[in-house]
Design a protein around this nucleic acid. Structure first.
Lengths: 353, 353
DNA sequence: CTGAAAGCGCTTACAG
DNA sequence: CTGAAAGCGCTTACAG
C-alpha cells in the first residue's frame, strides 16, 4: 500500500492544499468553494458549512498569487517613507499595517533614506510588486520627475503631508500652519520677540506651511520674522542640528521652535549644552512631535504634537474608500496639532552679549 | 479607424503590458522573452538586446503574481517583530528591507504588539501571503502552540534572538551573556556590590541569557546575585519601569542594569527623578541599546550596545543562504555587544537609609 | 540558440 | 443555488 498521507492537517508538510482539494473534500465544485471563500451570499447554508469544515480540516489557505493573477489585485498597499526607523514614521507604519491586516491587506514598506535616488528605487520596487495603492511621504514634492512618474501610474495614491501638482491623489495633511501659530502665540505670550524656527526644507509641504504659519503668526503678534530667524536643516543628523542652533543664536533668537526630527533636535540640544546655554532660562525651546525623549529630557520639552495613530487610521481609511470607490473626488483629511506646554519655555531673560 | 494607443510608453494608463506584448514587440517568443527576463545565459546577445530594448520601450514590468503562481515562490519575506515603532526593531526592519530590495525581494512587516494573540494573527497573515521565508522575533519562544505552528510550516525560519525547541531554524543571536558580564564588570570595578538588573521575561532568550550572564558575572566578581536583584518588567510602558525601579531600590541596589526597551527605561528614570535620586551619585545606571535618548540624557547614559545594522545584514544573509541552499545545516550567527561608558555610572556613595 | 504547449491556482461570466 | 469551462501572465520541460 502506497504511503498516502495527505489531509492529516499537520506533520507532513507536502504540497499545500489547493481549491481543488478543498472542493473535493467538501464534495462541491471549485466554483462553489470559491464562492464561500469569497463570502458570496448565494450559497446554501449547509453547503457553506461543509466547505468551511473542509477549510479547517485541510488547513486551507487561498493562494494569493493565483487570486491576484485572476483579479488583477494584489491586496497589498505600498508605504513609502523617508525612514521606518524614524519614531514618527515607524508608528504610522505600525498602525497602518495593523489596520490593513484586518481587511486582509498587506503593507509593503519601503524607506527612501531621505534621498531622491533612494526614493526612486523604493518607489520602483513598490510598483514592480503591483501594489493596489500607494501611500507616500516623498522627500521632495516639487520634483518634476517624481510628479511625472506618479502621473503615469494609474493607481490610487495618498500623499502624507505632501502636495504634488498636476496629479490625482488623496491626501492626509497635518495642520502645520496652526501648529506654528500656536507655538508663536505661546512664546510671544511669554514675552519673546526674537523667535527662531528650525524647519524642514520648502521642498516639502510642512516646510512651506510651517514657514507660512510662522510668518503669519509673527505678524499677528507684531513681531518681525526676519529671514535669518527661519533656518532649514539640510540633513537628518546632529551636525545639521548644531549648525542650525548656531545660526539661530547668531540671529539673536531667545526662543527656538524646532520643527525637526529627533536626530536634528538632538544636535540643537547638544549645541546649546556645549555653549552652556540653559533651557529655558537662556533659550526657550518648543519641539515638534512628542516622544519619550521629549517628556523625559531635563527640562521636559514643550511640544507641538499630533496623534500619529490618527494619521495612520486616516490614511488607511482614505485608501479603503478610494479602493472601494475609484471615482470619488479627491479626499483631503487634516489632522490637527496641539501645543503641550512643559518646562522648556519661559519668559526671556536679558542676556548680556 | 479605431483608437489604438498602445505602446506609447506613458500617458494613457491602459492595460499593463504582458510578456506577450513584450515578445511581440521584440519579435521573439514568450519563451525567449522570459529567458532574458530571468537572465538565462543561452540567449543570443543580439536577441537579448532586442528584448531589453522592448522592455524599456513598453516600460514592461514582470507580473509578480503570475511568476509566483508558476514558480511557487513569492519573493517576499515576512518579518515579525513585537513593534516596528520600537527604535531597535524599526532600524532592523529598515535595513533588512533595503538589503532585500537589491535582490528584488520584498519585506512584509507585521507587528505583534508584544502580545501572543496579536502574534498569532500577524503570523497567520504572513503565512497567508505565502512568504518565502520568515524572520521572527517572537514574544514567547517557549510557547508550545507557537512551536507547533512553526514546526508545521515547511518554510525557512530565522529566529531573531529567540530559540524554539524542536523546530528547524536558523538564528541570529545577540551575545547577551557577555553583555551583562561587561556591565557587571564595569559596575563591580567601580565598587558596587548590590547590582540590580531589570530584564525582559525568561520566556524569551535575552531574558534567560541575560539572567544567566548576570549571575555568572556576579559570581566571578564575588558578589551576591540575590533573587530580588533580578526583576523582570511585565509590560512595555512607563508604569512598568517605575515599578521595577521601586523593587530594585527596595532590594538595596546601588546600581541598575536596565535591560529594557526605551519606554520602560523611561519609567525607571522618571521614578528615580521623582524620588530625587540622582544619577550617578545616588544610583548608577547602565542601559541597553544606544539611542539619541541615551546619549543626550543628562547625564549621558552608559550603555551596552550592538550594531543593529549588523543584526539586519546578518539576518538577510542567513535568509539568502537558506533560500539558495535549503539543505544547509542550521546557521547560527552571533552579534557581539559592547559597553560604552558615559556618565551615568560612578562609584557608589554611602547612602543614609 | 529558439519556440509551441502545458499548467500553476484561482475567479467569473455563462448556463442551468 | 450549483457547476463546467475559459483564462489571468508567467515559466519550464520538451523538442528541434
Amino acid at each position: 500500500m502506497p504511503v498516502e498521507m495527505s489531509r492529516d492537517g499537520k506533520g507532513s508538510p507536502e504540497r499545500e492544499p489547493t481549491i481543488h482539494d478543498l472542493a473535493r473534500e467538501a464534495g462541491v465544485s471549485k466554483t462553489t468553494a470559491s464562492r464561500v471563500l469569497n463570502g458570496a451570499l448565494n450559497v446554501a447554508p449547509e453547503t457553506r458549512a461543509r466547505v468551511l469544515a473542509a477549510v479547517d480540516l485541510l488547513n486551507y489557505r487561498v493562494n494569493t498569487a493565483a487570486r491576484s493573477l485572476r483579479t488583477t489585485k494584489t491586496f497589498l498597499v505600498g508605504l513609502l517613507v523617508p525612514a521606518v526607523s524614524n519614531d514618527v514614521f515607524g508608528r504610522i507604519a505600525e498602525v497602518m499595517e495593523e489596520t490593513f491586516r484586518r481587511d486582509g491587506v498587506g503593507l509593503l514598506i519601503a524607506s527612501s533614506g531621505w534621498d531622491a535616488a533612494g526614493e526612486r528605487i523604493a518607489l520602483e520596487s513598490l510598483l514592480a510588486r503591483r501594489v493596489d495603492a500607494l501611500v507616500l511621504s516623498l522627500v521632495d514634492d516639487r520634483s518634476e520627475s517624481t510628479a511625472a512618474l506618479l502621473a503615469s501610474i494609474d493607481r490610487p495614491i495618498v500623499l502624507l503631508d505632501r502636495e504634488v501638482a498636476k496629479i490625482r491623489a488623496d491626501s492626509v495633511l497635518t495642520d502645520q500652519r496652526s501648529a506654528f501659530h500656536e507655538a508663536v502665540e505661546h512664546l510671544a505670550g511669554l514675552g519673546h520677540e526674537r523667535i527662531g524656527v528650525a524647519t524642514i526644507s520648502t521642498s516639502v509641504r510642512p516646510g512651506r506651511e510651517g514657514r507660512a504659519g510662522f510668518e503669519a503668526a509673527m505678524a499677528v503678534f507684531g513681531l518681525e520674522s526676519a529671514g535669518e530667524l527661519i533656518v532649514p536643516y539640510n540633513e537628518i543628523n546632529r551636525a545639521s542640528g548644531r549648525q542650525v542652533a548656531d545660526r539661530l543664536l547668531e540671529a539673536g533668537a531667545t526662543a527656538i521652535v524646532a520643527g525637526t526630527p529627533l536626530a536634528v533636535t538632538a544636535g540643537i540640544l547638544q549645541r546649546l549644552n556645549e555653549l552652556e546655554l540653559e533651557i529655558p532660562h537662556d533659550v526657550s525651546l518648543v519641539s515638534i512631535d512628542d516622544s519619550d525623549f521629549a517628556s523625559l529630557f531635563q527640562p521636559p520639552l514643550t511640544v507641538i504634537t499630533r496623534s500619529l495613530d490618527d494619521v495612520a487610521h486616516c490614511a488607511a481609511r482614505v485608501v479603503a474608500a478610494r479602493l472601494a470607490e475609484p471615482d470619488l473626488p479627491p479626499q483631503v483629511e487634516i489632522v490637527p496639532m496641539r501645543l503641550v506646554v512643559r518646562r522648556s519655555t519661559c519668559p526671556p531673560s536679558v542676556r548680556a552679549e
